[in-house]
Write a protein that binds this DNA or RNA. Sequence first.
DNA 1: GTGAAAGCGCTAACAG
DNA 2: CTGTTAGCGCTTTCAC
Lengths: 334, 334
Amino acid sequence: MRDVAAVAGVSVKTVSRVLNAEPNVSEELKERVRRAAATLNYELNVYAGGLRRMGARTNAIGLMLESVDDAFSAAIHRGVETVTRRHSIIVLAQSFEEDADRERTVVKEFLRRRVDGLILTTVSRDQAYLSAEAARGTSIVFVDRPAVSVAFDSVVSCNFDGAVAATRHLLEHGHRRLAYVGGDHEIWTLRERLRGYFDELDRWGVPRSDVVALTGVHGEEGARTEVHRMLDGPQPPTAIFAAHNRMTVGVLRALHERGRQHDVAMVGFDDVQLLDLLEPGVTVVAQDPHRLGELAAERLLARMAGNPLELETLTVPTTLIERGSGEIPGPFAA
Amino acid sequence: MRDVAAVAGVSVKTVSRVLNAEPNVSEELKERVRRAAATLNYELNVYAGGLRRMGARTNAIGLMLESVDDAFSAAIHRGVETVTRRHSIIVLAQSFEEDADRERTVVKEFLRRRVDGLILTTVSRDQAYLSAEAARGTSIVFVDRPAVSVAFDSVVSCNFDGAVAATRHLLEHGHRRLAYVGGDHEIWTLRERLRGYFDELDRWGVPRSDVVALTGVHGEEGARTEVHRMLDGPQPPTAIFAAHNRMTVGVLRALHERGRQHDVAMVGFDDVQLLDLLEPGVTVVAQDPHRLGELAAERLLARMAGNPLELETLTVPTTLIERGSGEIPGPFAA
DNA sequence: GTGAAAGCGCTAACAG
DNA sequence: CTGTTAGCGCTTTCAC
């Protein structure tokens, strides 16, 4: 900046004024400064400015996702970006991979960079470690899973309702021997989906002994293995509810390997590309991750702007999309 | 930091030493400082430090991708992250959406944040606007597409070879009326693939009049429409080469809608989840975007470390994966 | 309308 | 081993 001032023959303050579009600079000096900056290829250093500036905004937010590489997470990321872009806010995205230690590390890394706000998906048992930071003025919004034992806004899908809808759909199509294939029970969304599954089974009076609920299944490969095992068992299920996108793919892989995709019904949670082109098409409870990201970002920006808002959990509805696999009739079909 | 010093009863410099793990501090003071920092929930401000520190590293890099939401881009992102994470370097990821104006805006935004390096996928006609920045010491590596009229390292897929392999595969299976369905001709990767397509056709002596090469196709929906149009035409192709992931999906959608997936051969460029479960499975030329990201990040870090390196374009090979759709025999099959 | 001086939070350089 | 002073690049404050 000093160099620019020297080239333009003005003081650094005048350069600062011009580059920050502050008033009270003559057209002539504006022009000279701009030309000098262009010549020297100079860009303002936002951090140096932020240091002195009141409020010390960095115009950056931290976004922690399961993995930047996961389709669901990536859609949230994109949703956040569509909002932040309009405000020239930059997104620091980091994967935490369902690892509570890494979660802490990533958050700490964000705080050392003095982000103005955080949008977090978390897996730790509770997030009390964040309350001191919130007290210091950092805005925080949780996405996909609500905060535990701390008071922050959350934006989540209707996991319970979605699971109820999926389960009811299979029951209505005449299935009673259902199987739920889910992942880590530590994860809130999966607990909610399992709760919805059991809740609807209870409403229909289906005894727990008739159904299966697998909760510790590990990824796509785990789901595949479990389905093979179940199909080999004494009382194989006639319908499967896959509790998230990777489970869905694993279940499908097993069914196709067995050639059973046309006679074992299945509903997946979360939509995945190409599911409609499979034979049969795969019925899913679709989420709207892009919307989750947008809402979380909007909420965060409102908080950052200091708007007085009630603490809230925003819920995004899910949609059951019938494509064939969920409509395969069971033994009790009308 | 001053507060921490006050609480610990030491000077700020001692706090700085402890928190930066510098030597020459007694165990007792270390302990007192750490306790004070924990009490006050204090984290170092990396930017304030970087301002004074020689070299002024921000330990951040800018990553510009087509879209954080695109599976191919997201895999690059993940590859970059696996490398940067080991060095406590944070990634600012931004989508540019094949928009040259936005490309400039995003880069400028990165530079205002004084990133230590840039990993860029670009679409502008040339990137001369970056050379001044490079002269100032910012390391730059191009990923997926090479730099145009500026001398930077690049990490790219073997697009030409992959396209040759795909084309040859279809020719070998007895097809002569081929169709190439590609996107924007401004994009280097797509030009390379088209070049590979024509090159192999020429080698086989297939006249251009026998084949189709669509280059301005717009996204998945555009590809779908074009395939319908071709199938309605007087001389429909017996085999289709879809030049990237979204084209692949669009082509498949059209073929399935027509019920022609079993008699029109097809090879896609870039692998997509679930392609193996379709009927028939979809043959593709797979790229390794994760590897692209890793290599780009490694190269960038080596540059940032000041290693003297020759300017280079690293090339990642592609792999033809046979799954059925590409092996559908054509009229000239042996 | 413009600029000089002070200071944001931190570390380099040096003194003790 | 520990502290003091100066200054990184910028903006605030205030004088002209």
